[in-house]
Design a protein around this nucleic acid. Sequence first.
DNA 1: GTTCCGCATGAATCGATAG
DNA 2: ACTATCGATTCATGCGGAA
Lengths: 284, 284
Amino acid sequence: MIETRNVFLLGDCEEELKNIPDNSVDLIFTSPPYADQRVKTYGGIHPDSYVEWFLPKAEEMLRVLKPTGTFVLNIKEKVADGERSTYVIELILAMKKQGWLWTEEFIWHKRNCYPGKWPNRFRDAWERLLQFNKDKKFSMYQEEVMVPMGDWAKTRLNNLSETDKIRDESKVGSGFGKNIANWLSRDKAFPTNVLHLATECNNKNHSAAFPEGLPEWFIKLFTKEGDTVLDPFMGSGTTNMVANRMRRNSIGIEILPEYYEMVKYKLSPVELYLCEEGGKYEKA
Amino acid sequence: MIETRNVFLLGDCEEELKNIPDNSVDLIFTSPPYADQRVKTYGGIHPDSYVEWFLPKAEEMLRVLKPTGTFVLNIKEKVADGERSTYVIELILAMKKQGWLWTEEFIWHKRNCYPGKWPNRFRDAWERLLQFNKDKKFSMYQEEVMVPMGDWAKTRLNNLSETDKIRDESKVGSGFGKNIANWLSRDKAFPTNVLHLATECNNKNHSAAFPEGLPEWFIKLFTKEGDTVLDPFMGSGTTNMVANRMRRNSIGIEILPEYYEMVKYKLSPVELYLCEEGGKYEKA
DNA sequence: GTTCCGCATGAATCGATAG
DNA sequence: ACTATCGATTCATGCGGAA
Protein backbone atom coordinates (compact mmCIF):
# COMPACT_ATOMS: atom_id res chain seq x y z
CA MET A 1 0.00 0.00 0.00
CA ILE A 2 1.39 3.35 -1.04
CA GLU A 3 0.09 6.63 0.25
CA THR A 4 0.29 9.68 -1.95
CA ARG A 5 -0.18 13.19 -0.69
CA ASN A 6 -1.71 16.09 -2.59
CA VAL A 7 -1.36 19.71 -1.55
CA PHE A 8 -3.37 22.48 -3.19
CA LEU A 9 -2.72 26.15 -2.57
CA LEU A 10 -4.95 29.04 -3.54
CA GLY A 11 -3.19 32.23 -4.55
CA ASP A 12 -0.46 33.76 -6.66
CA CYS A 13 2.36 31.25 -6.94
CA GLU A 14 4.90 34.00 -6.33
CA GLU A 15 3.57 34.17 -2.76
CA GLU A 16 2.38 30.61 -2.24
CA LEU A 17 5.70 29.11 -3.29
CA LYS A 18 7.16 30.65 -0.16
CA ASN A 19 5.26 28.06 1.86
CA ILE A 20 7.22 25.26 0.21
CA PRO A 21 10.56 24.23 1.76
CA ASP A 22 13.91 24.53 -0.01
CA ASN A 23 15.04 21.59 -2.14
CA SER A 24 11.86 19.61 -1.71
CA VAL A 25 10.44 19.16 -5.22
CA ASP A 26 11.59 16.58 -7.79
CA LEU A 27 9.81 17.92 -10.85
CA ILE A 28 8.15 21.18 -11.72
CA PHE A 29 5.95 20.77 -14.77
CA THR A 30 3.83 23.71 -15.75
CA SER A 31 2.28 25.70 -18.52
CA PRO A 32 2.01 29.31 -17.43
CA PRO A 33 -0.43 31.73 -19.00
CA TYR A 34 1.09 32.86 -22.28
CA ALA A 35 1.52 36.54 -22.88
CA ASP A 36 -1.67 38.37 -23.85
CA GLN A 37 -3.60 35.14 -23.76
CA ARG A 38 -6.52 34.39 -21.50
CA VAL A 39 -7.06 38.03 -20.90
CA LYS A 40 -10.44 37.38 -19.40
CA THR A 41 -9.41 34.69 -16.96
CA TYR A 42 -5.95 35.68 -15.87
CA GLY A 43 -5.82 39.36 -16.67
CA GLY A 44 -3.29 38.91 -19.44
CA ILE A 45 0.39 39.71 -19.30
CA HIS A 46 1.76 41.98 -21.96
CA PRO A 47 4.63 40.48 -23.97
CA ASP A 48 6.88 43.40 -23.07
CA SER A 49 6.58 42.73 -19.34
CA TYR A 50 6.39 38.96 -19.44
CA VAL A 51 9.98 38.27 -18.39
CA GLU A 52 9.74 40.72 -15.54
CA TRP A 53 6.48 39.08 -14.46
CA PHE A 54 7.84 35.56 -14.59
CA LEU A 55 11.29 36.00 -13.14
CA PRO A 56 10.50 36.30 -9.41
CA LYS A 57 8.35 33.18 -9.68
CA ALA A 58 11.21 31.33 -11.34
CA GLU A 59 13.43 32.43 -8.48
CA GLU A 60 11.16 30.70 -5.98
CA MET A 61 10.97 27.61 -8.15
CA LEU A 62 14.74 27.48 -8.21
CA ARG A 63 14.70 27.49 -4.43
CA VAL A 64 12.14 24.73 -3.90
CA LEU A 65 13.56 22.37 -6.54
CA LYS A 66 15.91 19.64 -5.39
CA PRO A 67 19.42 19.77 -6.86
CA THR A 68 18.60 16.55 -8.69
CA GLY A 69 15.25 17.89 -9.85
CA THR A 70 14.05 19.25 -13.18
CA PHE A 71 11.86 22.14 -14.30
CA VAL A 72 9.90 21.65 -17.50
CA LEU A 73 8.26 24.77 -18.88
CA ASN A 74 5.64 24.45 -21.60
CA ILE A 75 5.32 27.71 -23.49
CA LYS A 76 5.04 29.25 -26.94
CA GLU A 77 5.40 32.82 -28.05
CA LYS A 78 2.53 34.32 -30.01
CA VAL A 79 2.64 36.41 -33.13
CA ALA A 80 2.49 40.15 -32.63
CA ASP A 81 2.24 42.51 -35.57
CA GLY A 82 3.35 39.88 -38.05
CA GLU A 83 6.40 38.81 -36.05
CA ARG A 84 7.10 36.16 -33.46
CA SER A 85 7.48 37.75 -30.05
CA THR A 86 10.82 37.29 -28.38
CA TYR A 87 9.74 37.10 -24.76
CA VAL A 88 10.30 33.38 -24.51
CA ILE A 89 13.88 33.45 -25.71
CA GLU A 90 14.51 36.49 -23.54
CA LEU A 91 13.16 34.49 -20.62
CA ILE A 92 15.63 31.70 -21.30
CA LEU A 93 18.51 34.14 -21.16
CA ALA A 94 17.16 35.79 -18.02
CA MET A 95 16.65 32.47 -16.23
CA LYS A 96 20.21 31.47 -17.03
CA LYS A 97 21.41 34.65 -15.34
CA GLN A 98 19.26 33.66 -12.41
CA GLY A 99 21.21 30.43 -12.03
CA TRP A 100 19.17 27.96 -14.05
CA LEU A 101 20.87 25.62 -16.49
CA TRP A 102 19.06 25.43 -19.85
CA THR A 103 19.58 21.75 -20.37
CA GLU A 104 17.35 20.96 -23.30
CA GLU A 105 14.47 22.09 -25.46
CA PHE A 106 11.89 19.46 -26.35
CA ILE A 107 9.38 20.03 -29.10
CA TRP A 108 5.73 19.19 -28.67
CA HIS A 109 4.34 18.61 -32.13
CA LYS A 110 0.60 19.24 -31.98
CA ARG A 111 -1.02 17.13 -34.63
CA ASN A 112 -4.33 18.88 -34.37
CA CYS A 113 -3.33 22.48 -34.17
CA TYR A 114 -5.70 25.35 -34.50
CA PRO A 115 -7.03 25.82 -38.03
CA GLY A 116 -6.92 28.95 -40.08
CA LYS A 117 -5.34 30.44 -43.16
CA TRP A 118 -3.37 33.59 -43.61
CA PRO A 119 -1.50 35.06 -46.53
CA ASN A 120 1.85 35.14 -44.76
CA ARG A 121 1.85 32.26 -42.33
CA PHE A 122 0.96 28.62 -41.80
CA ARG A 123 -0.72 27.09 -38.79
CA ASP A 124 1.41 26.89 -35.68
CA ALA A 125 1.75 23.21 -34.82
CA TRP A 126 4.40 23.14 -32.09
CA GLU A 127 5.19 24.36 -28.63
CA ARG A 128 8.35 24.51 -26.60
CA LEU A 129 9.09 22.30 -23.61
CA LEU A 130 12.07 23.97 -22.02
CA GLN A 131 14.04 21.83 -19.62
CA PHE A 132 15.88 23.68 -16.86
CA ASN A 133 18.02 22.23 -14.09
CA LYS A 134 19.82 23.43 -11.00
CA ASP A 135 22.70 21.04 -11.42
CA LYS A 136 24.31 19.09 -14.22
CA LYS A 137 23.67 15.92 -12.26
CA PHE A 138 19.94 15.44 -12.30
CA SER A 139 17.74 12.37 -12.07
CA MET A 140 16.58 10.89 -15.35
CA TYR A 141 14.89 7.52 -15.76
CA GLN A 142 15.24 6.98 -19.47
CA GLU A 143 14.24 3.35 -19.42
CA GLU A 144 10.78 4.36 -18.25
CA VAL A 145 10.00 6.02 -21.54
CA MET A 146 11.90 3.56 -23.72
CA VAL A 147 8.90 1.34 -24.10
CA PRO A 148 8.78 -1.82 -26.20
CA MET A 149 8.27 -1.17 -29.85
CA GLY A 150 4.93 -2.95 -29.84
CA ASP A 151 3.16 -0.29 -27.85
CA TRP A 152 5.12 2.53 -29.30
CA ALA A 153 4.57 1.40 -32.86
CA LYS A 154 0.85 1.18 -32.36
CA THR A 155 0.79 4.66 -31.01
CA ARG A 156 3.01 6.02 -33.70
CA LEU A 157 1.20 4.34 -36.51
CA ASN A 158 -2.27 5.03 -35.27
CA ASN A 159 -1.58 8.59 -34.38
CA LEU A 160 0.80 9.50 -37.09
CA SER A 161 1.10 7.28 -39.93
CA GLU A 162 -1.88 6.94 -42.16
CA THR A 163 -1.71 10.59 -42.93
CA ASP A 164 2.03 10.69 -42.85
CA LYS A 165 2.44 7.71 -45.10
CA ILE A 166 0.23 9.30 -47.70
CA ARG A 167 2.09 12.54 -47.43
CA ASP A 168 5.42 10.78 -47.48
CA GLU A 169 4.63 8.87 -50.61
CA SER A 170 3.79 12.03 -52.43
CA LYS A 171 7.30 13.25 -51.84
CA VAL A 172 9.25 10.43 -53.39
CA GLY A 173 12.78 11.37 -54.15
CA SER A 174 13.03 14.03 -51.53
CA GLY A 175 14.03 11.79 -48.72
CA PHE A 176 10.53 11.54 -47.34
CA GLY A 177 9.16 8.33 -46.02
CA LYS A 178 12.19 6.20 -46.44
CA ASN A 179 12.48 5.00 -42.92
CA ILE A 180 9.06 4.00 -41.78
CA ALA A 181 10.08 0.37 -42.02
CA ASN A 182 12.92 1.03 -39.62
CA TRP A 183 10.50 2.17 -36.97
CA LEU A 184 8.52 -1.01 -37.38
CA SER A 185 11.38 -3.45 -37.14
CA ARG A 186 12.81 -2.21 -33.85
CA ASP A 187 12.04 -3.94 -30.61
CA LYS A 188 12.85 -0.87 -28.55
CA ALA A 189 11.92 2.66 -29.38
CA PHE A 190 14.51 5.27 -28.61
CA PRO A 191 12.73 8.45 -27.75
CA THR A 192 13.95 11.74 -29.11
CA ASN A 193 13.39 15.31 -28.04
CA VAL A 194 10.37 15.58 -30.32
CA LEU A 195 7.00 14.52 -28.89
CA HIS A 196 3.92 13.83 -30.96
CA LEU A 197 0.69 14.38 -29.12
CA ALA A 198 -2.73 15.61 -30.10
CA THR A 199 -4.42 18.26 -28.04
CA GLU A 200 -7.56 17.22 -26.25
CA CYS A 201 -10.18 19.49 -27.63
CA ASN A 202 -13.18 17.86 -26.04
CA ASN A 203 -13.12 18.37 -22.32
CA LYS A 204 -16.14 18.82 -20.18
CA ASN A 205 -15.96 21.56 -17.59
CA HIS A 206 -12.78 23.17 -18.77
CA SER A 207 -10.33 23.34 -21.61
CA ALA A 208 -7.14 21.51 -20.78
CA ALA A 209 -4.07 23.37 -21.84
CA PHE A 210 -2.25 20.18 -22.66
CA PRO A 211 -3.07 16.49 -23.05
CA GLU A 212 -2.39 14.14 -20.16
CA GLY A 213 0.29 12.38 -22.16
CA LEU A 214 2.51 15.41 -21.90
CA PRO A 215 2.98 15.59 -18.11
CA GLU A 216 2.85 11.80 -18.00
CA TRP A 217 5.90 11.47 -20.22
CA PHE A 218 7.96 13.93 -18.21
CA ILE A 219 6.82 12.53 -14.86
CA LYS A 220 7.95 9.09 -16.01
CA LEU A 221 11.22 10.47 -17.25
CA PHE A 222 12.21 12.66 -14.33
CA THR A 223 10.58 11.13 -11.24
CA LYS A 224 9.99 7.82 -9.56
CA GLU A 225 7.12 6.67 -7.35
CA GLY A 226 6.90 8.64 -4.14
CA ASP A 227 8.56 11.73 -5.62
CA THR A 228 6.95 15.14 -5.57
CA VAL A 229 5.62 16.98 -8.62
CA LEU A 230 4.74 20.69 -8.53
CA ASP A 231 2.60 22.74 -10.88
CA PRO A 232 2.65 26.41 -9.86
CA PHE A 233 0.06 27.29 -12.52
CA MET A 234 -2.27 24.40 -11.82
CA GLY A 235 -5.29 25.41 -13.88
CA SER A 236 -7.57 22.43 -14.21
CA GLY A 237 -5.07 20.19 -12.43
CA THR A 238 -4.04 17.92 -15.27
CA THR A 239 -0.46 17.63 -14.02
CA ASN A 240 -1.60 16.85 -10.49
CA MET A 241 -4.15 14.29 -11.59
CA VAL A 242 -1.61 12.47 -13.72
CA ALA A 243 1.03 12.60 -10.97
CA ASN A 244 -1.53 11.22 -8.60
CA ARG A 245 -2.40 8.32 -10.86
CA MET A 246 1.31 7.57 -11.18
CA ARG A 247 1.78 7.47 -7.42
CA ARG A 248 3.70 10.70 -7.10
CA ASN A 249 2.94 13.32 -4.50
CA SER A 250 1.67 16.51 -6.02
CA ILE A 251 1.51 20.19 -5.19
CA GLY A 252 -0.68 22.55 -7.15
CA ILE A 253 -0.98 26.32 -6.92
CA GLU A 254 -3.84 28.16 -8.55
CA ILE A 255 -4.83 31.80 -8.39
CA LEU A 256 -8.43 31.40 -9.54
CA PRO A 257 -10.83 30.08 -6.87
CA GLU A 258 -13.08 28.30 -9.37
CA TYR A 259 -10.24 26.15 -10.70
CA TYR A 260 -8.87 25.63 -7.19
CA GLU A 261 -12.22 24.42 -5.92
CA MET A 262 -12.78 22.20 -8.91
CA VAL A 263 -9.46 20.44 -8.45
CA LYS A 264 -9.96 20.05 -4.70
CA TYR A 265 -13.28 18.43 -5.45
CA LYS A 266 -11.80 16.07 -8.01
CA LEU A 267 -8.64 15.03 -6.16
CA SER A 268 -8.50 14.09 -2.52
CA PRO A 269 -5.54 15.18 -0.36
CA VAL A 270 -4.48 11.60 0.29
CA GLU A 271 -4.72 8.78 -2.18
CA LEU A 272 -4.11 5.13 -1.41
CA TYR A 273 -2.81 2.70 -3.94
CA LEU A 274 -2.64 -1.06 -3.90
CA CYS A 275 0.49 -2.63 -5.27
CA GLU A 276 -0.46 -5.34 -7.70
CA GLU A 277 1.45 -7.46 -10.08
CA GLY A 278 1.09 -6.23 -13.61
CA GLY A 279 -1.29 -3.40 -12.96
CA LYS A 280 0.39 -0.05 -12.85
CA TYR A 281 -1.17 2.97 -11.27
CA GLU A 282 -4.31 1.12 -10.19
CA LYS A 283 -6.33 2.81 -7.56
CA ALA A 284 -7.01 0.86 -4.40
CA MET B 1 12.88 27.33 -73.35
CA ILE B 2 13.96 28.83 -70.06
CA GLU B 3 17.48 29.77 -69.28
CA THR B 4 18.70 29.61 -65.71
CA ARG B 5 21.86 31.24 -64.54
CA ASN B 6 24.19 29.96 -61.82
CA VAL B 7 26.85 32.07 -60.19
CA PHE B 8 29.47 30.58 -57.91
CA LEU B 9 31.84 32.66 -55.83
CA LEU B 10 34.94 31.46 -54.02
CA GLY B 11 35.71 33.20 -50.75
CA ASP B 12 34.35 34.38 -47.43
CA CYS B 13 30.74 35.37 -47.94
CA GLU B 14 31.27 38.49 -45.87
CA GLU B 15 33.46 39.77 -48.70
CA GLU B 16 31.90 38.02 -51.66
CA LEU B 17 28.40 39.23 -50.84
CA LYS B 18 29.64 42.73 -51.64
CA ASN B 19 29.71 41.72 -55.32
CA ILE B 20 25.96 41.18 -55.27
CA PRO B 21 23.68 44.16 -55.99
CA ASP B 22 21.18 45.57 -53.50
CA ASN B 23 17.70 44.09 -53.48
CA SER B 24 18.44 41.40 -56.03
CA VAL B 25 17.80 38.08 -54.25
CA ASP B 26 14.40 36.48 -53.70
CA LEU B 27 15.39 33.78 -51.22
CA ILE B 28 18.41 33.16 -49.06
CA PHE B 29 18.44 29.58 -47.85
CA THR B 30 21.47 28.43 -45.94
CA SER B 31 22.85 26.25 -43.23
CA PRO B 32 25.91 27.99 -41.84
CA PRO B 33 28.61 26.17 -39.95
CA TYR B 34 27.30 25.66 -36.45
CA ALA B 35 29.44 26.83 -33.60
CA ASP B 36 32.21 24.41 -32.75
CA GLN B 37 30.97 22.08 -35.44
CA ARG B 38 32.94 21.14 -38.54
CA VAL B 39 36.12 22.07 -36.78
CA LYS B 40 38.19 20.35 -39.39
CA THR B 41 36.69 22.04 -42.40
CA TYR B 42 35.82 25.52 -41.24
CA GLY B 43 38.12 26.02 -38.34
CA GLY B 44 35.23 26.18 -35.92
CA ILE B 45 33.62 29.25 -34.51
CA HIS B 46 33.44 29.41 -30.76
CA PRO B 47 29.91 29.69 -29.39
CA ASP B 48 30.81 32.86 -27.49
CA SER B 49 31.84 34.69 -30.64
CA TYR B 50 29.29 33.21 -33.01
CA VAL B 51 26.92 36.18 -33.04
CA GLU B 52 29.75 38.58 -33.59
CA TRP B 53 31.03 36.37 -36.42
CA PHE B 54 27.66 36.06 -38.12
CA LEU B 55 26.29 39.57 -37.79
CA PRO B 56 28.31 41.40 -40.50
CA LYS B 57 27.37 38.64 -42.92
CA ALA B 58 23.71 39.03 -42.00
CA GLU B 59 24.07 42.74 -42.66
CA GLU B 60 25.16 42.06 -46.23
CA MET B 61 22.36 39.55 -46.69
CA LEU B 62 19.88 42.18 -45.55
CA ARG B 63 21.23 44.44 -48.26
CA VAL B 64 21.09 42.00 -51.16
CA LEU B 65 17.64 40.60 -50.33
CA LYS B 66 14.66 42.08 -52.14
CA PRO B 67 12.04 43.72 -49.90
CA THR B 68 9.67 40.92 -50.90
CA GLY B 69 12.30 38.27 -50.25
CA THR B 70 12.85 35.86 -47.41
CA PHE B 71 15.86 34.59 -45.48
CA VAL B 72 15.61 31.05 -44.12
CA LEU B 73 18.34 30.09 -41.70
CA ASN B 74 18.76 26.43 -40.82
CA ILE B 75 20.57 26.19 -37.52
CA LYS B 76 20.64 24.38 -34.21
CA GLU B 77 22.61 25.15 -31.11
CA LYS B 78 24.82 22.39 -29.85
CA VAL B 79 25.21 21.14 -26.32
CA ALA B 80 28.20 22.55 -24.48
CA ASP B 81 29.07 21.35 -21.02
CA GLY B 82 25.69 19.77 -20.46
CA GLU B 83 23.72 22.83 -21.52
CA ARG B 84 22.21 24.07 -24.74
CA SER B 85 24.23 27.00 -26.03
CA THR B 86 22.37 30.26 -26.38
CA TYR B 87 24.11 31.67 -29.42
CA VAL B 88 21.17 30.96 -31.70
CA ILE B 89 18.61 32.80 -29.62
CA GLU B 90 21.08 35.60 -29.07
CA LEU B 91 21.51 35.77 -32.82
CA ILE B 92 17.78 36.18 -33.30
CA LEU B 93 17.74 39.15 -30.94
CA ALA B 94 20.82 40.66 -32.57
CA MET B 95 19.42 40.30 -36.09
CA LYS B 96 16.23 42.00 -35.02
CA LYS B 97 18.27 44.97 -33.85
CA GLN B 98 19.94 44.91 -37.24
CA GLY B 99 16.58 45.45 -38.91
CA TRP B 100 15.43 41.92 -39.68
CA LEU B 101 11.90 40.84 -38.88
CA TRP B 102 11.73 37.45 -37.18
CA THR B 103 8.63 36.26 -38.95
CA GLU B 104 8.47 32.60 -38.03
CA GLU B 105 10.31 29.60 -36.69
CA PHE B 106 9.73 26.36 -38.57
CA ILE B 107 10.73 23.05 -37.07
CA TRP B 108 12.50 20.43 -39.11
CA HIS B 109 11.71 17.14 -37.45
CA LYS B 110 14.47 14.77 -38.47
CA ARG B 111 13.23 11.25 -38.70
CA ASN B 112 16.58 9.66 -38.44
CA CYS B 113 17.67 6.11 -38.95
CA TYR B 114 20.49 6.14 -36.44
CA PRO B 115 19.48 6.44 -32.82
CA GLY B 116 21.82 7.43 -30.04
CA LYS B 117 21.73 7.31 -26.29
CA TRP B 118 23.29 9.42 -23.56
CA PRO B 119 22.76 9.23 -19.81
CA ASN B 120 21.18 12.66 -19.47
CA ARG B 121 19.81 13.44 -22.90
CA PHE B 122 17.91 11.95 -25.81
CA ARG B 123 18.78 12.13 -29.44
CA ASP B 124 18.31 15.57 -30.93
CA ALA B 125 15.73 15.10 -33.64
CA TRP B 126 14.96 18.65 -34.70
CA GLU B 127 16.51 21.78 -36.07
CA ARG B 128 15.37 25.34 -36.34
CA LEU B 129 14.43 26.96 -39.63
CA LEU B 130 14.32 30.62 -38.77
CA GLN B 131 12.41 32.80 -41.19
CA PHE B 132 13.51 36.41 -41.42
CA ASN B 133 12.14 39.15 -43.64
CA LYS B 134 12.91 42.73 -44.50
CA ASP B 135 9.30 43.72 -44.80
CA LYS B 136 5.95 42.51 -43.55
CA LYS B 137 4.81 42.16 -47.12
CA PHE B 138 6.79 39.32 -48.63
CA SER B 139 6.10 36.84 -51.40
CA MET B 140 4.66 33.48 -50.36
CA TYR B 141 3.22 30.85 -52.71
CA GLN B 142 1.36 28.68 -50.24
CA GLU B 143 -0.56 26.61 -52.74
CA GLU B 144 2.72 25.20 -54.07
CA VAL B 145 3.36 23.20 -50.91
CA MET B 146 -0.08 21.90 -50.07
CA VAL B 147 -0.22 18.36 -48.74
CA PRO B 148 -2.86 15.62 -48.96
CA MET B 149 -5.52 15.90 -46.32
CA GLY B 150 -5.76 13.58 -43.35
CA ASP B 151 -7.51 10.23 -43.48
CA TRP B 152 -10.76 11.55 -42.24
CA ALA B 153 -11.16 13.51 -45.44
CA LYS B 154 -11.76 10.37 -47.44
CA THR B 155 -14.88 9.49 -45.56
CA ARG B 156 -15.89 12.77 -44.07
CA LEU B 157 -15.34 15.30 -46.79
CA ASN B 158 -19.00 15.59 -47.68
CA ASN B 159 -20.03 15.95 -44.11
CA LEU B 160 -17.49 18.61 -43.48
CA SER B 161 -19.00 20.94 -45.99
CA GLU B 162 -22.38 20.28 -44.41
CA THR B 163 -21.01 21.06 -41.00
CA ASP B 164 -19.35 24.10 -42.32
CA LYS B 165 -22.49 25.40 -43.96
CA ILE B 166 -24.43 25.01 -40.75
CA ARG B 167 -21.73 26.68 -38.76
CA ASP B 168 -21.66 29.48 -41.25
CA GLU B 169 -25.40 30.05 -41.17
CA SER B 170 -25.18 30.70 -37.47
CA LYS B 171 -23.03 33.67 -38.20
CA VAL B 172 -24.90 35.04 -41.17
CA GLY B 173 -25.66 38.69 -41.00
CA SER B 174 -24.00 40.45 -43.84
CA GLY B 175 -22.95 39.87 -47.40
CA PHE B 176 -22.51 36.64 -49.26
CA GLY B 177 -21.18 34.52 -46.43
CA LYS B 178 -18.36 32.16 -47.02
CA ASN B 179 -16.96 30.70 -50.16
CA ILE B 180 -18.35 27.18 -50.25
CA ALA B 181 -16.23 26.41 -53.29
CA ASN B 182 -13.19 26.30 -51.03
CA TRP B 183 -14.51 23.12 -49.53
CA LEU B 184 -15.90 21.35 -52.56
CA SER B 185 -13.42 19.05 -54.21
CA ARG B 186 -10.87 19.86 -51.57
CA ASP B 187 -8.32 17.11 -51.25
CA LYS B 188 -5.36 19.07 -50.05
CA ALA B 189 -4.61 21.02 -46.93
CA PHE B 190 -2.11 23.70 -46.13
CA PRO B 191 0.87 22.46 -44.17
CA THR B 192 1.93 23.65 -40.74
CA ASN B 193 5.21 25.05 -39.49
CA VAL B 194 6.48 21.57 -38.61
CA LEU B 195 8.27 19.70 -41.40
CA HIS B 196 8.87 15.98 -41.35
CA LEU B 197 11.86 14.90 -43.35
CA ALA B 198 14.20 12.02 -42.89
CA THR B 199 17.86 12.84 -42.94
CA GLU B 200 19.60 11.26 -45.84
CA CYS B 201 21.40 8.19 -44.65
CA ASN B 202 23.05 7.28 -47.92
CA ASN B 203 26.53 8.68 -47.91
CA LYS B 204 27.77 10.37 -51.01
CA ASN B 205 31.19 11.83 -51.46
CA HIS B 206 30.24 14.58 -49.09
CA SER B 207 28.17 15.02 -45.99
CA ALA B 208 25.12 17.02 -46.93
CA ALA B 209 23.97 19.34 -44.21
CA PHE B 210 20.34 18.76 -45.12
CA PRO B 211 18.21 16.63 -47.43
CA GLU B 212 17.15 18.07 -50.76
CA GLY B 213 13.55 18.18 -49.62
CA LEU B 214 14.36 20.96 -47.22
CA PRO B 215 15.52 23.65 -49.65
CA GLU B 216 13.00 22.34 -52.17
CA TRP B 217 10.12 23.07 -49.82
CA PHE B 218 11.23 26.62 -49.08
CA ILE B 219 12.12 27.36 -52.70
CA LYS B 220 8.62 26.29 -53.70
CA LEU B 221 7.09 28.34 -50.92
CA PHE B 222 9.01 31.59 -51.33
CA THR B 223 10.02 31.79 -55.00
CA LYS B 224 8.67 31.27 -58.49
CA GLU B 225 10.45 30.18 -61.65
CA GLY B 226 13.07 32.66 -62.76
CA ASP B 227 13.65 33.99 -59.24
CA THR B 228 17.07 34.03 -57.61
CA VAL B 229 18.13 31.82 -54.70
CA LEU B 230 21.30 32.49 -52.71
CA ASP B 231 23.25 30.21 -50.41
CA PRO B 232 26.14 32.13 -48.82
CA PHE B 233 27.47 28.95 -47.17
CA MET B 234 27.14 26.73 -50.21
CA GLY B 235 29.01 23.63 -49.06
CA SER B 236 28.25 20.81 -51.42
CA GLY B 237 25.74 22.94 -53.30
CA THR B 238 22.53 21.17 -52.39
CA THR B 239 20.51 24.39 -52.35
CA ASN B 240 21.91 25.46 -55.72
CA MET B 241 21.33 22.10 -57.32
CA VAL B 242 17.73 22.00 -56.18
CA ALA B 243 17.14 25.61 -57.21
CA ASN B 244 18.59 24.77 -60.59
CA ARG B 245 16.32 21.79 -61.08
CA MET B 246 13.38 24.00 -60.16
CA ARG B 247 14.35 26.61 -62.75
CA ARG B 248 15.47 29.25 -60.33
CA ASN B 249 18.68 31.19 -60.78
CA SER B 250 21.17 30.44 -58.08
CA ILE B 251 24.12 32.07 -56.40
CA GLY B 252 26.47 30.10 -54.21
CA ILE B 253 29.36 31.31 -52.09
CA GLU B 254 31.89 28.90 -50.67
CA ILE B 255 35.10 29.52 -48.81
CA LEU B 256 36.70 26.12 -49.37
CA PRO B 257 38.19 25.57 -52.84
CA GLU B 258 37.49 21.84 -52.88
CA TYR B 259 33.75 22.35 -52.38
CA TYR B 260 33.75 25.27 -54.78
CA GLU B 261 35.43 23.24 -57.51
CA MET B 262 33.19 20.26 -56.92
CA VAL B 263 30.05 22.31 -57.35
CA LYS B 264 31.38 24.11 -60.40
CA TYR B 265 32.07 20.74 -61.92
CA LYS B 266 28.62 19.42 -61.10
CA LEU B 267 26.56 22.45 -62.10
CA SER B 268 27.08 24.44 -65.25
CA PRO B 269 26.76 28.23 -65.17
CA VAL B 270 23.81 28.21 -67.58
CA GLU B 271 21.14 25.56 -67.70
CA LEU B 272 18.50 25.29 -70.40
CA TYR B 273 15.07 23.87 -69.75
CA LEU B 274 12.36 22.79 -72.12
CA CYS B 275 8.84 23.74 -71.20
CA GLU B 276 6.63 20.70 -71.44
CA GLU B 277 3.09 19.99 -70.51
CA GLY B 278 2.90 18.04 -67.30
CA GLY B 279 6.55 17.62 -66.65
CA LYS B 280 7.93 19.99 -64.11
CA TYR B 281 11.61 20.72 -63.78
CA GLU B 282 12.59 18.54 -66.73
CA LYS B 283 15.99 19.20 -68.13
CA ALA B 284 16.23 19.94 -71.82
C1' DG C 1 -20.08 -5.00 -30.45
C1' DT C 2 -17.94 -2.74 -34.30
C1' DT C 3 -17.94 0.80 -37.68
C1' DC C 4 -19.47 5.00 -39.45
C1' DC C 5 -21.09 9.52 -39.45
C1' DG C 6 -22.64 14.16 -37.41
C1' DC C 7 -20.89 17.59 -34.86
C1' DA C 8 -18.50 20.83 -31.80
C1' DT C 9 -14.39 23.16 -30.94
C1' DG C 10 -9.44 24.19 -29.96
C1' DA C 11 -3.07 28.53 -25.78
C1' DA C 12 -4.39 30.94 -33.73
C1' DT C 13 -3.94 34.96 -36.73
C1' DC C 14 -5.25 38.52 -39.92
C1' DG C 15 -7.76 42.38 -41.71
C1' DA C 16 -11.52 45.37 -41.32
C1' DT C 17 -14.22 48.18 -38.49
C1' DA C 18 -15.18 50.77 -34.47
C1' DG C 19 -13.87 53.99 -30.55
C1' DA D 1 -2.54 57.53 -35.60
C1' DC D 2 -3.30 54.00 -32.37
C1' DT D 3 -5.80 50.41 -29.84
C1' DA D 4 -9.69 47.23 -28.97
C1' DT D 5 -13.04 44.25 -30.78
C1' DC D 6 -14.99 41.12 -34.10
C1' DG D 7 -15.71 38.24 -38.15
C1' DA D 8 -13.58 35.03 -41.31
C1' DT D 9 -10.73 31.42 -42.24
C1' DT D 10 -9.47 26.30 -41.47
C1' DC D 11 -8.21 21.06 -40.04
C1' DA D 12 -7.84 17.23 -36.78
C1' DT D 13 -9.89 14.88 -33.08
C1' DG D 14 -12.99 12.59 -29.85
C1' DC D 15 -17.46 11.80 -28.43
C1' DG D 16 -21.94 10.05 -28.98
C1' DG D 17 -25.56 8.27 -31.57
C1' DA D 18 -26.86 5.59 -35.63
C1' DA D 19 -26.35 1.73 -38.88
